[in-house]
Structure formats: C-alpha cells, structure tokens
Design a protein around this nucleic acid. Structure first.
Lengths: 343, 343
DNA sequence: ACGTGGGGACCGTGTACTGAG
DNA sequence: CCTCAGTACACGGTCCCCACG
C-alpha cells in the first residue's frame, strides 16, 4: 500500500449537483455559462462549486470535448546552448502569461535534435495531449511543416509567414533590424564590417545574412566576411579570432546573439584589440548579459516576453476557430551602449 | 467553419480491434502486457497497432486510470532572473530525459511569486492534470509543504529532506561545498573573506550561510560580512561595491551564483581593484557564463542535468507506489580558474 | 409557447466478470 | 478445469432531447 492512494474520493460534478439539489446537467450548464438554467440557480451552483473548491476533471472534459486545453512547445536544442540563451525562458514566461487567461496548460519538451522533435510532435498528437503547437527555430526547408499540414495539426510558427498562408506566424522584421545595425555602423564611419551568424540552417539566419549583404551593398561596401556558427560561446570566440587574425581585419562585427558577442569582446581583449576604439561590436540579442560585460554591448533589443504573449494569443485564436492570422511584432531596435564607437 | 476541424475521425482502440478481428478488451490486454490473450493474438494486435500508428488517447486513459501521466513543475521567479540563470533550462532538460522513458509529460508554469505558485498547484491538482509535482526553491518555512501534505499530493522536493521524511527530496550537500570553497581560499592565504548570499528566504541560502560561518570559525576567522541579495546582477554589483568601499575590504568574496560573481568582477574592475591579485572571487554556480568573463571564474560546479534526471526518477518511483526515498546527489566540486589567487 | 431542469447518450480506455471451448 | 476472448461498466465531464410547470 502506497503512501499516496490514488483511489481517494475526489470531488466531482455530481457532488456539486447533489449539494445544490439539481442534476449534473444543470451544473454543467451553469458553469459553462450556457442558457437553460435560471439566474438564481446558476449563482447558487457557482457559489457552491467555489465554496467546495471544485474544478472540472481535465481528462473527463478533454475526452468529452475532444480538446485537451493544452498546447505544446518543442524546443530542439542542446541543453548547453539553451541554458545560456535567456531568450527561451523569457519567451516561455510570455507564452504563459497569455495561456493562463484561458486556463490553457503548456506542455514542454526539450529534445536535442530535429528527428526527435518530430517524434515528440507525433506522440503528443496521436495521444491527443495537445490541441496545437508552437513551432520555433524554423529551418529554411523544415521537415516539420509538411508533417503538420498533412496531419492537420493547428500550429503557430515563430518566424516568417509561409507564402501559402496556411499557418499563422508571429514574426518581426529581422531584415530591418540588421539593416539598422549596418546603417548605424556605417554612420560611425565603419567600412570593414563582418557578420558572425547563427545556425545557417535556420531561416532567420538566412534572412539576416541576405539583409546584411543588401545593406552593405546599398552603402557601396563589400562585407569582410560572414561566418556561420552554432550560437555557442566557443564558436563566437573562434570566429572572432579568425576575423581578427586576417589581413583585412574588420573594424566592426555584428554577432547573431549576445553570447557570441560576449565571446567576441573576450577574444578581442586577449588579442590586445581595444573595444570599442579598435573594434566595434553589436549583439543581435539583448539581455542582462549585454550589461554584464565590459564594455557593455550595443545590442538589437526586443520585448521577448511580449513576443511570447503574441504567439500564444495567435495560437489560441486559431484553436478557437479563427482563420489563420499572422502577426508582425515590433522590429528590434538598436540600443547603443559602450561597445560601439566612431571609426 | 474553421480550417481545423476538431471532429475529424481519429484512430481508436476499436479500429484496431476491428482490424484484428477481436474485441476491444483483447486489444487493451495485449497492449498493456496483461495475461488473458494468447501470444499469437497479442503479437498480431501489436503489429497492427504499430502499423496503423495507434496511440491510446491520453484523456481516456487518464480518466480510466485516474492517472494523468503528467507531472508539474512550478517555477516562482521573475522572468528576468530566470532568463540569466542557466540552471533552470539544464535542470528541465535533465528532468525530461528521464520522464521521456516512461512517456510522462511535463507541465510547466512560470509565475512571478509564491501565492500564484500555490494557486497553480491547487488548480492542477483539482483538475487532475498532474500526478505529482516537483517543488523547487524551497523556503525555510514554506507554505507549500503543509498544503501538499494536507492535500496528499505526491511531490519531490529539490532541496534538503524534511525531518519527518514524508516527502522524498533530492539534494546535495551545500554545506560541504561552501566549506570546500572556504578551505580553498584559506589555503591560498586569505583571511578576510565575505559572502554574497542569495535570497535569504530560501532554505539553501540559510544552510550555506551557516556553513560559511562554521567553516570560517573552524579556521579561527570571522567573516568580513554576509550580504543577502535577490540573485540579480544589480544586487551582486551593489553588494560588491559596498564591500570594496568598506575599511576592512575583503581579499576574497564568494557569490551564491554565477551572475552575481560576474557582477563582482565587473565592479572590481570599475573600482580599479585587480582580480585575482587584489581580490579573489568564487562563483556558487557553474555555467558557460563563468568561462565567458575575464578573468574566468573559479566556481562550484555540478552536473545540473543529472540533478534533474535524479529528481524525475525519484518522483516517478513515488508515483509508482514506492515509499518516499530521498536521494543525495553528488556534492558540487570546486573548479579553480583564473579568478582566485594566493593572497 | 416558453423558460427551466431531469435523464441519458457519448467521448475512448481500462478492467472486472462471464462464458465458451 | 483452465485458457482465451467477449460483454459490461466505470471514469467525469459535455450536451442533446424531452417533460413539466
């Protein structure tokens, strides 16, 4: 016999019905705000339910409604890189602030790679554990999208909308943000600018890289280099080392996240390259980290929590029968700090 | 009419039964490995189920078994501090590596304070969304514990076991780790040592502070100061500034996490105090962050993912009817880096 | 005819009980 | 009499149909 007996009698709707002297159907109607009960009965039932602390059993409700009142988020990254990226926790907090309003739960799965992410999605869907999904870290040619479409799984994409518009997306104009960073550096007199990019398979990396080339070209400049990485500190350090060792050393580098920008500062210091006077640095994500290093980092900043909240709202609208409707969030804005200076 | 029709016909157990030419009872027995079906029938049913990609409906199973196959994790911290602490994501990844083995899902909730954490727990339990809980950030006098006991909610504590032993706990010897740090500093010749602690309401902060006093006393030393904080970078910076401005400035400071230690390095530099030659610094958590700053931080390091995995395993054992059995994880070990030097 | 509330089918699984070979 | 499979009901809600005043 276990310490915890699963078979303890728990409060059900019939307890409420009995206590109120009505049928369970009446209780159900009263609680869901449907017509069919008088206002007096409804309020009596509601106060009894509240008093007894009754809440509908999620499994029973889910079975009856064919709705789990739960959405899923699968994150496909190694735990190491996840940990240092403040982005995810902030995003999740934003998601939940919105989900809580409709009593929708969030199921989370952290898996190391894409195949296992697909596996997790299929499992959740087959078991009807989730009503819909939030899909992050979109690849340029993402195997999950055809899967989601063919299985008709409601989902919101965190990233650019697809041309066909079948799924809603929540996104911000990465290209404009990158352009602002380039314009800012050129305005300071920089001509030799390099970009340390994130995972090349990710769509937004490609968008940003294209925008970087375009912005440079508009100023009649050629990029010193664009280096692909995996977002880690080590990769950022190595990229910086290579860039600073080359003959045509850049006078400014933009990094695709804050972690790598920090690595860049660190490497520059080791090599005796002064930041910002000999090298300007811009971080592609903003977080407390950017204010924790010396010099503090000029960064592209956005409200990540709001981003998460908008994502949740977009998914909920879809689940409630709304047509797929994408949402463009605010563009990241440049926050100048100490790591950038005139050239 | 919505794009997504919730009423699409989905595979159920009766589809499998029909296809196999048996009753649904036989299918259920076959899939759950119970006696009552012949081996030939069982394997035939299993292969048909696998071929059709059938998975039991979680709501139906949960309703029938009175078990959600889901556990909950409530994190009560502001999104800001959560973001910079790599600890949580690593811990979650560790939890899930273990939960996935038994197909148990993880429900996550991030709330800003304790009362709302209690609210979330009550909601989940009343709705039977979870079978058990993982309780982190224990307070010395934690209002959640009596609640969990009175409602008989299975839970595992991440922290020291309670004297009564009613709930299993997963913990590591914080006192020993702090002692090792003090011994290390004293071994380097330090006499004036200060401690920048975390949230004073948290139990493990109190344990560490007590251990700090004891270890110092054993060496015949009096602490320069023990400063309570809220774990944020700003608090760490302020504490460091105060300590370094005082007449009896410490020659070494231990910080309760990596973020504040980073702040300490930053403030020391601003004040022209050389690290490590004039000031040694030890970080109480280890992460990539400790290797991202200059000088790199000597830290108390542990395998946080394994910690999460052990926690999940302990909870699952309890849920499967095992007696509450606590688990002492490995003690954090000191990893010397560049931020500590002889005095 | 209309507002109100009772009775019961149904959602998909798990699992006693029952009965046939 | 023992093995295997079929039937029936429980789990706790939602929601439709219909009786009653």
């Amino acid at each position: 016999m276990s310490t915890y007996d699963r078979r303890v009698k728990r409060l059900t709707i019939s307890d409420i019905a009995e206590r109120a002297g009505v049928s369970i159907g009446a209780v159900s109607f009263a609680l869901n705000g449907r017509p069919g009960v008088s206002e007096a009965t409804r309020s009596r039932i509601l106060s009894i339910a509240a008093e007894m602390g009754w809440r509908p059993n999620a499994a029973a409700r889910g079975l009856s409604e064919s709705r789990a009142h739960t959405v899923g988020l699968v994150i496909a990254r190694s735990a190491d890189t996840l940990g240092v990226e403040p982005f995810f926790m902030k995003f999740i907090a934003g998601l939940e602030s919105e989900l809580a309003l409709t009593r929708t739960a969030l199921l989370l799965q952290v898996v190391p790679d894409h195949p296992r992410s697909i596996e997790a999605i299929c499992d959740w869907w087959a078991e009807r554990r989730v009503d819909g999904l939030i899909v992050m870290d979109l690849w340029a040619d993402d195997a999950r999208l055809p899967l989601l479409e063919s299985m008709r799984i409601p989902a919101v994409l965190v990233g650019r909308p697809r041309p066909d518009g079948g799924m809603p997306a929540v996104w911000s104009d990465d290209a404009a943000a990158v352009t602002e960073a380039v314009d800012f550096l050129v305005g300071l007199g920089h001509q030799r600018i390099a970009r340390v990019a994130g995972l090349p398979a990710l769509e937004h990396t490609q968008v940003r890289t294209a925008a970087f080339h375009a912005a440079m070209a508009r100023h009649g400049l050629a990029p010193v280099a664009v280096v692909d990485t995996d977002y880690t500190w080590a990769a950022g350090a190595e990229a910086t080392r290579a860039l600073l060792a080359a003959a045509d050393r850049p006078t400014a580098i933009t990094f695709d996240n804050d972690v790598m920008a920090t690595a860049g500062v660190s490497v520059a210091r080791q090599l005796g390259v002064g930041v910002p006077h000999e090298l300007s640095i811009i971080a592609g994500d903003d977080s407390q980290l950017c204010e924790m290093v010396f010099p503090t980092l000029t960064a592209l900043s956005r409200d990540v929590q709001a981003y998460g909240a908008h994502t949740a709202r977009t998914l909920l609208r879809l689940l409630n029968g709304g047509a797929p409707q994408s949402f463009q969030d605010a563009t990241a804005r440049l926050v100048p700090r100490e790591s950038t200076a005139p050239c």
